[in-house]
């Protein structure tokens, strides 16, 4: 366990190097919220109704704001492509010869990244949420708090496993980086990042929520918005755990099978 703690610490220090660029970047990531507010105002005005997809205007804007929180946990920028490059260029050798699991190594790396991200992003997030407080539905009910936090943490593990599983495809296909863009586009929509999945026709919503992606963003966000009772929240947590278990299994098996095919290119 000590070695992974070291990985965590080194990566932590590394992340603190680019502070200013980071702070500005975090703020600017919220810029599209302006378009969201403008667009949905026009849509609600045009529709002439209070609720669209069981969400009021304020809730709709909050949805997009809270998606930012869920994404802060679940998104793994560059994870799948790092794995793909390591496999293709033969960099994986370095890890295979060490008494260290590649997957667990990266898990710690990501935990460190996320820890730094939360510390540094807290201020910009707090400011943006303060400015937009008029839209927000208020805090989730007291007894749901632990579940909310748990589901965000599980969203992190789920995001990690989904991206690992995709990256593992590199063992079988030489050039997967371009497929990753397709995957990212699909994930963007299927996870409810582009719009709340409740806006879809019922049959489509039901099919899309069968996939793991909705458990990464859409469901946790709905819970944070107070749209779920205790029973539904429990189901969500269970669903997340099941998907994490399934994907961990896929990663474990895929990793073992993949290593057998691995040719370790390069000198």
């Amino acid at each position: 366990m000590r070695k992974y703690w070291q990985v965590f610490r080194i990566s932590l220090a590394d992340r603190f190097v680019y502070r200013t660029d980071f702070l500005i970047g975090t703020f600017l990531r919220f810029a599209p919220i302006v378009t969201t507010i403008a667009l949905w105002r026009a849509v609600y005005a045009g529709a002439g109704r209070e609720e669209i997809g069981s969400l009021r205007y304020g809730e709709m804007v909050s949805y997009y704001l809270i998606v930012m929180i869920a994404r802060a946990f679940g998104s793994m920028p560059g994870l799948a492509s790092t794995l793909a490059t390591d496999i293709r260029d033969g960099n994986l050798r370095k890890f295979i010869v060490q008494p260290l699991s590649y997957v667990i190594y990266h898990l710690h790396l990501r935990m460190a990244h996320k820890s730094v991200y939360f510390v540094m992003a807290a201020l910009p997030y707090a400011l943006v949420f303060f400015w937009c407080r008029g839209f927000l539905p208020g805090w989730p009910a007291g007894e749901l708090w632990p579940l909310c936090i748990l589901s965000l943490v599980l969203a992190f593990f789920l995001g990690f496993m989904i991206n690992m599983a995709i990256g593992l495809l590199s063992f079988w296909f030489m050039e997967v980086t371009s497929f990753m863009f397709i995957f990212m586009v699909s994930q963007y929509f299927l996870s409810g990042h582009q719009f709340p999945l409740t806006l879809l026709p019922d049959w489509l919503e039901r099919s899309v929520t069968l996939l793991p992606f909705a458990y990464e963003t859409f469901f946790p966000v709905m819970m944070l918005m107070g749209k779920m009772n205790a029973a539904e929240a429990g189901q969500l947590i269970a669903g997340q755990c099941i998907w994490i278990a399934i994907l961990s299994g896929v990663v474990a098996v895929g990793w073992r099978r993949g290593l057998r095919r691995y040719a370790a290119f390069g000198g």
Binding site: L39, A42, V43, A45, G46, A47, G48, R49, I52, G53, F189, Q194, F195, L199, L200, P201
Partner: peptide, 14 residues
């Protein structure tokens, strides 16, 4: 798809 989804609920945007 996003545009279709929006126009399921409204006839016009501004």
């Amino acid at each position: 798809v996003f545009v279709e989804v929006i126009f399921r609920f409204t006839k016009q945007i501004d």
